[in-house]
Nucleic acid binder design. Structure first.
Lengths: 358, 358
DNA sequence: TTGTAGGCGTTATCAA
DNA sequence: TTGATAACGCCTACAA
C-alpha cells in the first residue's frame, strides 16, 4: 500500500462525520448538499464535526457514480496542445465553450486523439464530448463515444450520424475572398492550405493529397476558392502557424516572376501573416506586387499583416454554441446542428495585380 | 426522468454482460481489465456478448470510485483560458505537463480560480492539482485541495507548506538583464511589469501596488531589477499580452525626451514586443534610442522584436517537471521542489544609451 | 425533521 | 481459471 493510498484510506467519510455528529449518514448528506430539510442546529453540528475531522466534503468520485454524472466534458483535439493553442481561433472556441459549460458546473478535460484506441476517451469519466477539428480518427472517436451513450458535438467536422455539428460557412466565405481577388483582376492565384490530413507535411497541393484529405475545414475552404478559380493550386501546410505560412510563401514566391502568383489565399490569418513575412523577405510589396487574404479575423502582432483582408468568423460564439448544444443534449432537450457565418473584412493587403489580366 | 437519464439507465452493465456470457461479474471484469488470468475462450465469449449488447466497457465513474483514482489532474489557472493561453509560455508549460501525465493515463482538467469558493476544485473528481501562476485565491485553493488530501504542485508560486513548487530563477535572471543594461551605460531604466495582483489594471508601479502585490513572479522579477536599479519605477500591466506592452510603452515613452527612460525592462517577451511597437509608433529607434529587454525567450511574430534581448526559460521542462513531481506524489514517492534556470540571450534590442551617463 | 434501506457499477480478496 | 462476497462513499425514496 503506497503512502498516498494509506492517506486516502485514512480520510474520513461522510459516514464517519455522521457518526461523530450523532446523526445518520443521510442527514449528514443533506447537511452538505442542501438538497433537503435539515435543522440549522444539526447542520452546524455536522459541519463542525466535519471541520474537526478534516473532512473535505463528499467525495466527487462516489458522488458521480451515484448521480451518474461527473460534471466533465471532454474536449478532444487532434494535435498536441501547443500546436492547437498556437492558433487563437482554437483558444477562442475553447474559451467560448468554457464560458457556457463552466457556469453549469461542467469542466473541460483536455484530450488528444492519441494512438492507443482513444484510451482516455474510453476510461475518463466524461458526461459528453466536443470534437475540435478532429479528422484522423474521427470515426473511431465517435464510435467509442456513441457506444457509451454520450452526447457528441463536433466543430466543423464533416456531417456524421448522431453527431451535432457546429459549422462555419467555409465554402461560401472562401468563395467571397476568391471573388474579391478576381474582381480586382487577379488570375494567377495560389492557395496556402491548412493541414489536409492524414499526414502533416508541407508540400504542393496535389489531386492525391486532396483526395486523401481528411480535414473538412481545409477541404471546404479549398473548394470555395476553386469555385472561382477552378483547379487553383498551391501548398498544403502542417498547420495554422506563422512559420508554416512563411515556408509556404517562400515555396510559392521565390520563383521567377512569371511563375509567381499575383495573389495568395491563405486559409488562416496566421498562414497569411507568414506569407506576408516571406514576401517582405523577398522584397515583394504587399499589396502592390502581391495580394494576400487570410481567414479567421484574429488580431495579428506582425504590423505588416495588421490590417489583413480576411473573413471574420465568430470563434467564441461557435464555442458557446457547442457548449449550449451539449448542455441541451445532456438535459435531454433536443438540439440541432447549426452553421455560423463569416463576414468579409476588406483590409489593405489586396489590390489589383500590377499587370491586370496576365 | 430526462431522456439522457433514461438512456443511461438502459445501458448494459458489466453484470449484464457477465450474465449473458454465463460467467460471474468478477470474471467479466478480468476479461476487460486484463488484470488477472482468464482463459482465452471465456474472454472471447465475454467480449462477444459485450459487443452484442452494445456494452462500451467498464464505467469510468464506478471504476474510479472503486479504485480511488479518477486519472484526472486539475490544471488550475487564474484567469480565463484565452487570457492565459495568449502567452505561449503557459501553453508550453501545459504541453510539458500533458507530455508527462498523458502517458501515465492522466488527463488534464482545466479549472479557473472562479469566485464561488473554488467550487469545481471541490466537486471535480481529481487525483491531484497543478497551480499555474495562481495568486489571488492561492491560499484558499491550496486549503481546499490539501483538505482533500490531494497532492499539489505549484508553478512559480510563493513557498507554501505542503506544496511542491516548480520555480524559476526570476530574481537572478532579472538581475542579469538589469546588469546588462547598466553595463551598457543605462541609468534611466523603467520596468513594464506583469500583472501584480490583486487587481488587473494598468497603471504606474507604486509602493502601494507592490506592497499589495500577490503575483510571485512579477514581484520577483521586479526585485531582481531593483537590486541593480534601486527604486526603479515603471508600469504594471493587466497581463502578458502585446497590447498591454503597447499601452505601457506609450505611457512611458510618449513624454518629453528628458523624462524618457533610455531602457525598458519588460517582464515578458510579449510585453517587450508591445513596448517595441509603441516605440516604433513614436519614431524611437530600438536599440539606438531605446533599449528593450524581455523575459521568456519565446519566438515573436513581430519582426521588429524578432531578436529580442531576453532570458530564455525552459517552459516545457517546467511543465514536465511538474508532471513528474505529481506522478511521484501520486505514487507515494517523495518528491521535492526544484528551481529552473534561465539563460541570457543577447539580442539586438539593447545598445548603449545615446548619451551615456545622463 | 430525521432515520432506514438499498443500490449506483466496479474491482479486490479470497476460496474453490 | 473461476466464482462468491464485500466493499468503494454517497444519495434518495420512503418511512418514521
Amino acid at each position: 500500500m503506497s503512502r498516498a493510498e494509506k492517506a486516502a484510506a485514512e480520510r474520513p467519510t461522510l459516514a464517519a462525520v455522521a457518526r461523530g455528529a450523532g446523526v445518520s449518514a443521510s442527514t449528514a448528506s443533506l447537511a452538505f448538499s442542501g438538497a433537503g430539510p435539515v435543522s440549522p442546529a444539526t447542520r452546524e453540528r455536522v459541519l463542525a464535526v466535519a471541520e474537526e475531522l478534516g473532512y473535505g466534503g463528499p467525495d466527487p468520485r462516489a458522488r458521480s457514480l451515484r448521480r451518474g454524472r461527473s460534471g466533465i466534458v471532454g474536449a478532444v483535439i487532434e494535435s498536441s496542445l501547443s500546436d492547437a493553442f498556437r492558433d487563437p481561433v482554437n483558444v477562442a472556441m475553447l474559451d467560448g465553450l468554457a464560458d457556457v459549460t463552466g457556469p453549469a458546473d461542467n469542466s473541460l478535460l483536455l484530450l488528444t486523439e492519441t494512438t492507443p484506441a482513444q484510451s482516455r476517451l474510453i476510461d475518463a469519466p466524461l458526461d459528453a464530448v466536443v470534437l475540435f477539428g478532429c479528422s484522423l480518427r474521427l470515426d473511431e472517436s465517435v464510435a467509442v463515444v456513441r457506444r457509451r451513450g454520450m452526447p457528441v458535438v463536433s466543430i466543423e467536422a464533416r456531417p456524421m450520424d448522431g453527431v451535432l455539428d457546429i459549422g462555419l460557412d467555409n465554402v461560401e466565405a472562401s468563395r467571397t475572398l476568391a471573388r474579391h481577388l478576381r474582381e480586382l483582376g487577379h488570375r494567377r492565384v495560389a492557395v496556402v492550405a491548412l493541414e489536409l490530413g492524414p499526414t502533416r507535411e508541407l508540400g504542393r497541393i496535389t489531386d492525391e493529397r486532396v483526395a486523401a484529405g481528411t480535414t473538412h475545414t481545409a477541404l471546404q475552404r479549398l473548394a470555395g476558392v476553386r469555385e472561382v478559380f477552378p483547379g487553383a493550386g498551391g501548398v498544403v501546410t502542417a498547420g495554422s502557424w506563422t512559420s508554416e505560412g512563411h515556408r509556404a510563401g517562400m515555396l510559392l514566391l521565390d520563383v521567377p516572376p512569371a511563375d509567381r502568383p499575383t495573389a495568395i489565399v491563405a486559409q488562416s490569418d496566421l498562414l497569411a501573416s507568414g506569407v506576408i513575412a516571406a514576401a517582405a523577405e523577398l522584397g515583394l510589396a504587399v499589396p502592390a506586387e502581391l495580394s494576400v487574404v487570410g481567414f479567421d479575423g484574429i488580431r495579428l502582432d506582425d504590423p505588416r499583416a495588421a490590417d489583413l483582408t480576411t473573413m471574420r468568423q465568430p470563434a467564441v460564439e461557435k464555442g458557446r454554441a457547442a457548449g449550449r448544444a451539449l448542455l441541451d443534449l445532456l438535459a435531454g432537450v433536443p438540439a440541432e446542428s447549426q452553421t455560423f457565418t463569416s463576414v468579409f473584412h476588406p483590409g489593405c493587403t489586396t489590390a489589383p495585380p500590377r499587370e491586370a489580366g496576365v
